[in-house]
């Protein structure tokens, strides 16, 4: 894969909107005081941006979360390029809107449902709004895969740039909390089976609820626009990444094994569990590379091992691996370099 330089990041989570807020949450290892299995919900005022959202004021919450993250990444990257490609990945999509549409069917019957709710329940509504707001006429894709959506999206972004389909790609992930999914999550957490939803994380799995938010990266082949480091490799079998010795690993699973000499960390207690949470982990990695700071593992349990980073401190960081396993023990690995 050709290197993908990170020119801009937009991030939105329960701690607020923007890179600075996310950075502050990482810096303070701030874990919201939520009860187990509850949702790290984005405060409603964070989604009130009349300037950006005016044209899509009737859009659902999922779309607004997506648009703000994408908009911020483009602005952070100082880009107004209308030919940028867009790849939105999501695990669960606008499921809350889907259930609202099912409410309509159950309450009013098949012939009396809302076309507005239906059109927002379609997975790519958010990407459509992103393209409209940012005036992007390049390829626009929404993809889903429950375990490695973000990793697959990065691979595709790299392929698009390699074949000259796009010079720049806005690639990111979006998830939304909803009451039904919270109930499903609670049930799955209780039974703790190989459920298809990733429940475990480095640290205290029982204290981390579902998360919601969006994170977008504006990636480019132009190294002069590199602002946060570079995605230098993505693998879905672990082979290329493990040959080198990173300065730090972000491990999304409790039971992952790495060389005991490599510091490890994981940040999902800050923003919550999401099927596409790898995007947020990579945003944290990009900030660590830019700031040359190792952020402490929030809610870390010392019993996890001596190499867990328990204190935020300056560190010379050249390379970070973000590793995730799926339920079948297939491994993905995203390598970021300074």
């Amino acid at each position: 894969m050709d290197p993908m330089n990170i020119a801009g990041i937009g991030v939105l989570c329960s701690h607020g909107r923007g890179v600075a807020r996310f950075e502050q949450a990482l810096n303070e290892s701030r874990v919201p005081s939520t009860a187990p299995a509850s949702c790290h919900r984005i405060p409603s005022e964070v989604l009130e941006d009349r300037e950006v959202l005016w044209d899509i004021r009737r859009a659902d919450r999922f779309s607004k979360i997506a648009v703000l993250g994408a908009y911020d990444a483009m602005r952070d990257g100082d880009s107004r390029d209308g030919s940028v490609g867009i790849i939105v990945c999501t695990g669960l999509g606008p499921h809350a809107t889907t259930f609202r549409f099912l409410d309509d069917i159950l309450d009013y019957g098949d012939a009396s449902v809302s076309p507005t709710i239906f059109s927002h329940s379609i997975h790519n509504a958010a990407a459509s709004y992103i393209a409209k707001i940012l005036k992007c006429t390049g390829p626009t894709l929404t993809v889903t895969q429950f375990h490695f959506s973000f990793q697959q999206a990065l691979l595709l972004a790299g392929a698009w740039m390699s074949e000259g389909r796009c010079e720049h790609v806005l690639v990111g992930c979006v998830e939304e909390c909803g009451s039904v999914m919270e109930s499903i999550y609670g049930y799955k957490l209780k039974v703790g089976t190989n459920s298809g939803m990733h429940l475990s994380a480095c640290g205290n799995k029982s204290s981390t609820g579902l998360g919601e938010g969006s994170v977008f990266f504006l990636v480019t082949s132009d190294p002069a626009r590199r602002k946060y480091g570079v995605f230098s490799d993505v693998s879905l079998d672990g082979e290329p990444c493990v040959e080198e010795r990173p300065d730090l690993c972000i491990i999304e699973n409790d039971d992952a094994t790495v060389d005991p000499g490599i510091p490890i960390v994981e940040f999902s207690p800050i923003f919550g569990h999401m099927m596409t949470g790898s995007g947020f982990q990579c945003a944290a990695a990009a900030l660590m590379l830019r700031n040359q700071v190792a952020y402490a593992c929030p809610s870390s349990d010392v019993s996890d091992g001596p190499n867990v980073i328990v204190e935020t401190k300056p560190m010379a960081i050249r390379e970070i691996l973000c590793i995730k396993y799926d339920c079948k023990r297939l491994r993905s690995c995203v390598k970021l370099n300074k």
């Binding site: 894709l141 993809v143 895969q145 697959q152 691979l155």
Partner: peptide, 29 residues
């Protein structure tokens, strides 16, 4: 053993999926 991805692009999903696969093959994935 290779990449797998579900495209959810409404009525162009199937055509886009073919395009994605074309990019994968060209990229050597």
């Amino acid at each position: 053993q290779g990449p797998s991805l579900t495209v959810v692009n409404a009525c162009t999903s199937g055509a886009d999926a073919i395009g994605v696969a074309l990019s994968w093959l060209r990229a050597g994935l």
